[in-house]
């Protein structure tokens, strides 16, 4: 009888340890963190991404943004002039928005009238400008990861990317790893 009890306890202990490990792993997979893949370069979508990010940061949620493809245009600094681009990169650079303030609307762009109207409406309705949102994001420690491969594909150079305190260059694996441990993942 005594021996039986000991064996049961030992078994329970082992099960307990296995459970603890499992819980730890699950908890690690659901950190209070928001991972967002931002692929669109439309003004409205960048605005949505930034508003959601700021709201999450206000909730003390760690925010990690992964900028890729068309969204890279929103990270360009119009004051910077990178040298040594090939012909196609120069064309891309000319045809894509020069900065977050030159983005187009996905709807009702009306050859640039739409963004002008939205910006003036935002001002009137006290909605933060994209400039202000990026400033707040920097202050709140929101991280931006720039997709290295997209940079290369679109011919953007690091020298033309905005100065942002929490910015790094990485690949899709970094996004997947970040997203894997986040309780929230979004794709815009």
């Amino acid at each position: 009888m005594e021996k039986n009890n000991e064996a049961t306890i030992l078994q329970l202990q082992l099960q307990m340890e296995a459970l603890q490990k499992k819980v730890q792993r699950l908890e690690n997979n659901r950190q209070d963190q928001l991972s967002m893949a931002i692929v669109s370069g439309d003004m409205d979508k960048i605005l949505a991404a930034m508003i959601i990010s700021l709201a999450a940061a206000a909730m003390d949620t760690q925010v990690k943004l992964f900028f890729s493809f068309w969204a890279l245009a929103a990270l360009r600094d119009p004051k910077k002039n990178p040298k040594g681009k090939d012909f196609i990169s120069k064309m891309f650079g000319m045809m894509l928005p020069k900065s977050r303030n030159n983005l187009k609307l996905s709807n009702m762009n009306m050859a640039g009238m739409g963004p002008v109207m939205i910006k003036s409406l935002m001002k009137k309705k006290n909605v933060m400008s994209l400039d202000e949102m990026f400033r707040q994001a920097a202050e709140l420690g929101i991280e931006i990861t720039v997709c290295e491969m997209s940079m290369d594909l679109m011919g953007f150079k690091k020298e033309e990317i905005i100065d942002y305190p929490h910015l790094r260059y990485a690949g899709a694996t970094t996004f997947v790893a970040d997203a894997g441990e986040s309780a929230m993942q979004l794709f815009i």
Binding site: I51, L54, A55, A57, A58, D60, K125, Q136
Partner: peptide, 13 residues
């Protein structure tokens, strides 16, 4: 009052 969503939350934080 001078700021729209998510401004009030940021100010509260």
């Amino acid at each position: 009052r001078g700021t729209a969503c998510p401004g009030p939350l940021l100010e509260a934080k």
